[in-house]
């Protein structure tokens, strides 16, 4: 099966090469694509000089737009599985096989790497965990599925959802909404335990003062997504 790792990068000049080296040594057989979301630092320069495989967006679209560009690439180049990995080194690529395996076996359509199942590694700060728990509960109420780590960007999807996500993908703060969207389309969603690290460089895309906006926006998006789609049974 052809597997593509989609690595969104925004201002990751310090960490991006490390992520790719680790990926190459952990799973040399899979392809990857870095999506440079119009970084303001030297990310593009670093990518070009290291002859990394990348696409570079001419305007900043935010994480959702970048990821979707990756899915479009995966669709057009006939990949069977796409895996999202953050460009900041948070996601340990030695778990990549764990995340793709249930898809290869046909057990699931979407697999989410979760830090909250075995509760190992970096667990995020207290406030954020409360926020994540709330969103998780909201998704459970709306879709009837339990996903613990709804904001995890370490996830794999099969061909069917590469197609769906290439067509339509949430724009900003897309992770929880993407789960809901897939769920209402009848996806079988599975969570597997992974260990995440604290980011090595750079800052999170969600700063403290933005978190209120984040919570309102994402909650609304989840409810809206649920209301505007009648559930398909699989």
């Amino acid at each position: 099966m052809k597997v593509l790792a989609i690595i969104p990068a925004y201002n990751e000049e310090k960490s991006i090469l490390g992520v790719i080296q680790k990926l190459n040594s952990d799973c040399a057989e899979i392809d990857y694509l870095v999506v440079n979301d119009c970084s303001r630092d030297n990310t593009l320069y670093v990518l070009e000089n290291a002859s990394v495989k990348y696409v570079s967006l001419p305007l900043n679209l935010g994480i959702g737009g970048g990821i979707q560009a990756g899915y479009k690439f995966a669709l057009r180049n006939d990949y069977d599985i796409a895996v999202q990995i953050d460009g900041d080194g948070q996601h340990d690529t030695s778990f990549l096989r764990t995340v793709t395996k249930p898809i290869e076996s046909g057990e699931a359509d979407i697999v989410i790497g979760s830090r909250f199942i075995d509760k190992q590694g970096f667990q995020s700060s207290g406030m954020r965990r409360i926020g994540i728990r709330f969103l998780s509960l909201l998704i459970q109420v709306c879709c009837g599925i339990k996903v613990h780590d709804v904001t995890s960007g370490f996830r794999a999807v099969n061909r069917k959802f590469i197609e769906e996500y290439a067509k339509e993908y949430p724009i900003d703060y897309p992770e929880p909404e993407a789960i809901v969207k897939a769920s209402v389309q009848g996806a079988r969603i599975l969570e597997v335990p992974v260990i995440m690290k604290e980011r090595e460089n750079g800052t999170s895309s969600i700063s403290a003062w933005k978190s209120v906006y984040y919570m309102i926006k994402v909650s609304l998006a989840i409810i809206l997504c649920r209301l505007s789609n009648s559930r398909k049974e699989h």
Partner: peptide
């Protein structure tokens, strides 16, 4: 629509 164009142009550039 701008988003679509940006993505297309990036994929094309590659």
């Amino acid at each position: 629509r701008i988003k679509e164009l940006v993505q297309e142009s990036a994929l094309m550039e590659k």
